[in-house]
Computed example of a mutant assay.
Amino acid sequence: MMNQIPAATLRQAVTRNVAASIAEDEGSGDRTAALIDPERKVEASVIIRHAGVIAGRPWVDESFRQVDPQLAVTWHCNEGQQVDADTNLLTITGPARSLLTAERIALNWLQTLSGVATRCRSYADRVAHTQTQLLDTRKTLPGMRIAQKYAVRCGSCANHRIGLYDGILIKENHITSCGSITAAVERARETSPDVPLEVETETEAQVAEAIAAGADHIMLDEFPLESMTRVVERYSGIARFEASGGITEQKLATIAETGVDFISLGVLTKDVTAADLSLRIKDDD
C-alpha cells in the first residue's frame, strides 16, 4: 500500500509547520538579534559536518521567507542528494537580524529531515539488488507527519498510508473487534470499496483467510523467514506482501530476498538522528 503526498497537502504542511516553529521560537521578539544594527547585511553558509542525504528545502526556504522576505537563499546541492562531510549546502544573504532569528528555525527542519533521508538511503541501499520497496509507517513525530514522509521519499524509500483516511489497514485489534478477518474485509468492501485495503496476519492460516476474503495486500507480521518464503511463493501474483515487525537493518536483505513486495519500518521516522549542521556568517575581512 503505497501512497503519495498530494501537492496541496505538502504546501499547506510547509506553511503551517514553519509558522508554528517561528511562533514557538521567536515569540514576542528576538531579544538577542535586536542588539544588531538593523541596516547590517551579511552572508552566511550552512555546512554539514558529515556525509548525508539532504532533505527539507521547502521548509528551509519557507522559514527564511516567513521571517524576512529580504533573506535570499542560494542552494549548492539538490534535494535528495548524497553529500560529503563539510559540504556547503546553501548560502543566505540579507539583514543580519533576520538571518540570525531564522537560523535555528531553518536548521531544525534541515537537520531533522536530512537525518530521516540519510537513514532511509542507508536502508534502501541494502535492498537495492531486489524488487522490494521499503515503506515508512505512521510512527512519526507529532505534527511532523507530512515533513517526515516527504523526507522518506528523498531518501529513496516510499510512503505507506499518510493517515487513517487514505487506506484501510485491518490489524489484530480490528479483527478481534469485528469478529474475524473475513467479517472485517467484507465490511471494508461495503463501506469503502475504492480504498486500498490491507490485512495484518500473524499465521499462514490467517493469510489464507485474508486472501479468500478478497484482500489484495497482506502484512506478514513477525513471520519466520521460512513461513514468509512459503507464503510468498504460494500466493505469488494473487496478493502483494509486506513484511513487518522486528526487522533490523541487518535483516533487510535476507527478508527482501524472500520476494516480498514491501518491508515497512517504523525506525525510518521514529528514531531520528539529526544531521550535524553549522551556520557561519562570512567575516567582512
Rank of each mutant, 00 (worst) to 15 (best):
I146L: 13
R126F: 01
L164H: 06
T191W: 03
I181M: 12
A128S: 13
R126Y: 00
E190A: 09
T137K: 05
I146E: 03
H160Y: 08
Y123R: 03
L134P: 14
N173Y: 03
H174R: 08
T137V: 07
K149D: 00
A147S: 07
D136Q: 13
T182K: 09
D125N: 14
K149V: 08
K139N: 02
Q148S: 02
Q133W: 10
T137D: 04
K149Y: 11
Y123G: 01
Y165R: 06
E172C: 03
Q148M: 04
Y150P: 00
V152S: 14
I170Q: 11
L164S: 06
T176P: 01
Q133N: 09
A188T: 05
K139E: 05
S177R: 11
T130N: 04
E190Y: 00
A183K: 14
V185L: 05
I170F: 09
A147W: 06
A188M: 06
A124C: 14
H129I: 04
C154W: 10
L169A: 09
I175L: 12
S122I: 11
A151E: 07
A124R: 03
Y150N: 10
T176S: 15
N173L: 02
H160M: 02
C154E: 15
I175T: 12
N173M: 06
E190K: 11
K171N: 10
C178P: 01
Q148I: 00
P142A: 04
A147M: 04
T191C: 08
A188E: 02
R161W: 01
Q133C: 11
R189Q: 15
A183P: 02
Y123D: 03
T191E: 07
K149F: 08
T191G: 04
Y123I: 02
R189Y: 09
L141N: 00
S156G: 09
I175N: 12
A188P: 01
R126A: 00
D166A: 09
